[in-house]
Amino acid sequence: MTTNHILTVENLSTRFQTPDGEVEAVNNVNFHIDPGETLGVVGESGSGKTQIFLSLMGLLAKNGTSTGSVRYKDKEILNLRSRDLNKIRGVSMSMIFQDPMTSLNPFLKISRQMTEVLVEHRGMSEADALKRAIAMLDRVGIPGAAQRVHMYPHEFSGGMRQRVMIAMALLCDPEVLIADEPTTALDVTVQAQILDLLRDLQKDFNTATVMITHDLGVVAGLCDRVMVMYGGRVVETGTVRDIFYDSHHPYTEGLLKSMPRIDRANEDSMFAIPGQPPNLQNLPTGCAYQERCGYVMDRCCVERPLLKGFGDGRASACFREDGQ
C-alpha cells in the first residue's frame, strides 16, 4: 500500500512509572499527516497532547515508555537509538517547544546554537552556516538579524525568542514541524504576527505542521484537520469544518460552547462543562468523560467507547454514535 503520509502513528501508547503507580498519558493513538497539511491537536491540560509528540521525537522523560508504531515516510522511528534518530530529529522533523527556554541554551549565543546543526547535518562550512542562520532569522522577521545573531537568548523579548525558535526549527527545511503551544505565552498582537508567519512558511515550504494548542480560535484560523484529546485518548477527529460546525463528541461540543467569543454580545452566563478533568492515574471504568457528560447512559460507566470512523476521515469515541 502506498500513501503519501509523511508521518503515520499507529497504536501509540505512552506510560510513566511513578511512585504512586503507572500513569497512562497516551493511550492507543492513531493519526497521520500529509505534506502541506496542518493538524490541530486540542484538549485540556494533561490530556496527553505534548507527550504524544515527545514520544515520537524520542524525547520522553526517563520514567516513560512508548509502544506502537511511528513511521516517518516508510521508516519505523519509535524507540530508535539516539544516534539514528538524530539524523531525522531537528533535520527532517523539528519541534517548537511549549517553553522556549527549554530548548535554547541560555549560555550560548544564538549564532552558535543555530550553526551547529547545519555544520553537523548538512556538512556546511561555519561561514555558510552563519549566512543561512542570518537569512532564516531575517525570514521570521527579526530586524537586524546580522547583529542579533550574536546575542544571547535573554537579550530577546518573548516574541522575538519565539521567532528565534521557529527559525531554528526551520533551519534544515524540515518536512514535519511540530509546534507545541507556540504562541500561548505571547501577547495577542505578537501571536497574530507569529500565526501569519506560520501561514506564510507553510505556503513557501509545504511543511506538514502539527499545531498543539488550547485556543480553538487558533485552530479555526490555521488548521486543516483537528484531533481532540481527552484523558490520554483521541475522542474525535475531523476536518476543521466538521469539528466546528458539526461536532459529534459531547466533549468537543462542550469545549466549543464554553469558549468565550469576542465577536458576540453575551447571554446571561457562560456555558460551563461541570466537574473536573479526569485523573489519569485512576481513570473510571468506561468513558473518561462520563462524570461531566450531559448524555451519559448506563453503558458509558461500564464499557469504554472506541474511536469509530464514519467516513471522510471522521471519527468519534462515544456510544451515542451507535444510534442509541
Partner: peptide, 25 residues
C-alpha cells in the same frame, strides 16, 4: 488588539479583516 483575537469559527476567522501591528513593545 480586538482584531488580533482569534475567533473560534473557521469561516469568520479566515475572512475577517485584521490589523497586524509591527514590532514589539
Amino acid at each position: 488588539l480586538i482584531s488580533a483575537v482569534p475567533i473560534p469559527d473557521p469561516e469568520i476567522e479566515r475572512n475577517k479583516e485584521r490589523i497586524v501591528l509591527t514590532g514589539d513593545l
